[in-house]
Design a protein around this nucleic acid. Structure first.
Length: 333
DNA sequence: AAACCGGGGGG
DNA sequence: CCCCCAGGTTT
């Protein structure tokens, strides 16, 4: 990306941050690292409005890292109740114990050391080090994915290792141009949360609209791109293999849906009572589901639909799903 | 790379 | 109903 574009973006984000009311509980000139750590862990995959009461409650119960390290786990979990992702609480306490044991009770400053602590990943390490110590490292969370992908028109799926790397590098490049990692990083998250929202972003009043790629190419509603994690399903299919003197029974499929207008074997709703397996079951993989295909050697009586027979010669001229075509090639009739 | 982890809010 | 949220760990 051109440096002047990166800078225009960065300056607008910092201006946005400095001119907005701040919502985080520990927003002060010298944020306490423990408070930032606690709030960032609480807010993982959690809306700020939902997490704030928990932050206040837990900080009051455990005012220092030492208190947290020595806490009764059940006590901590009772305060966490309702937040979800309860391993966050256990990891948080494990981290506090690590800090007591290995760092004299004080959080390390660099993101490289922070990330070694339980429950602190790339995001939280970058957040603590940039906000508390000015390290020039970009935070990458859901807001950052959204804002960067829209503004720069990046369509790389964000939920892939390659996408994550690309966005992290871009975030780092921008934050290196800033004199205040804390303001820039918090600004882009605040901007994403309040302004460049997932749905109905406030483009009409956005000061970045003039140079926003998504806005100027009509892609606001398609960015960021996420690779679909299609939950694959399995469907059982029972094919009737009916062989007659006249040939092999085939039926033409409807003109809509999968394999529209192609020829296949008559279907059975379930494994036939009077039938022998005619072949091994074959799993036919589609993008969204596995078709587990069974072939049953049955007589005409098992089929409750008009049957048409085709000779091998005739069948070769019919359009068929590949799984049927392969089967036809294998058998003798 | 994909699964798993929770509860709440909004369209 | 689905998507998203100031993500991280485990397999």
């Amino acid at each position: 990306m051109p440096v002047n574009l990166l800078n225009s973006f960065r300056i607008s984000i910092e201006d946005f941050y400095r001119s907005h009311k701040r919502t985080m509980p520990w927003r002060k000139h010298n944020p306490v690292p423990y408070e930032v750590w606690l709030s960032e862990v609480i807010l993982q995959q959690t809306r700020v409005a939902q997490g704030i009461p928990y932050f206040n409650k837990i900080l009051q119960a455990f005012p220092t890292i030492e208190d947290l390290a020595n806490a009764n786990e059940d006590h901590l979990l009772s305060l966490w109740t309702g937040l979800g992702y309860y391993n966050r609480a256990r990891n948080l306490q494990k981290g506090a114990q690590q800090v007591m044991k290995n760092h004299n009770g004080e959080l390390p400053k660099s993101s490289g050391d922070l990330i070694k602590i339980a429950g602190i990943g790339p995001y939280t390490a970058a957040a603590i080090s940039s906000i508390c110590h000015g390290e020039k490292i970009g935070v990458v969370d859901g807001n950052v994915f959204r804002v960067l992908s829209r503004f720069f028109g990046i369509s790389t799926p964000v939920n892939t290792s390659g996408g994550l790397k690309e966005f992290q590098l871009l975030a780092n490049e921008i934050v290196h141009l800033s004199n205040s990692s804390a303001d820039y990083n918090q600004g882009i998250m605040e901007f994403g949360a309040l302004h460049c929202t997932p749905k109905k972003p406030l483009c009409m009043m956005c000061e970045l609209a003039d140079i926003c790629t998504a806005y100027n190419t009509g892609k606001v509603d398609v960015l960021p791109v996420k690779k679909k994690t299609v939950k694959r399903t399995t469907e059982e299919i029972h094919f009737a293999v009916v062989v007659d003197k006249a040939g092999l029974a085939m039926r033409k499929r409807d003109t809509e849906g999968i394999w529209a207008g192609l020829y296949e074997f008559p279907r059975l709703e379930k494994p036939p009572l009077n039938g022998l397996p005619a072949a091994e079951q074959i799993v036919h993989k589609l993008s969204h589901k596995d078709l587990r295909c069974h072939f049953w050697k049955v007589t005409e009586n098992e089929i409750n639909e008009p049957i048409t027979y085709y000779t091998k010669h005739e069948i070769r001229k019919l359009g068929m799903p590949i799984i049927i075509a392969k089967y036809v090639e294998k058998i003798e009739f």
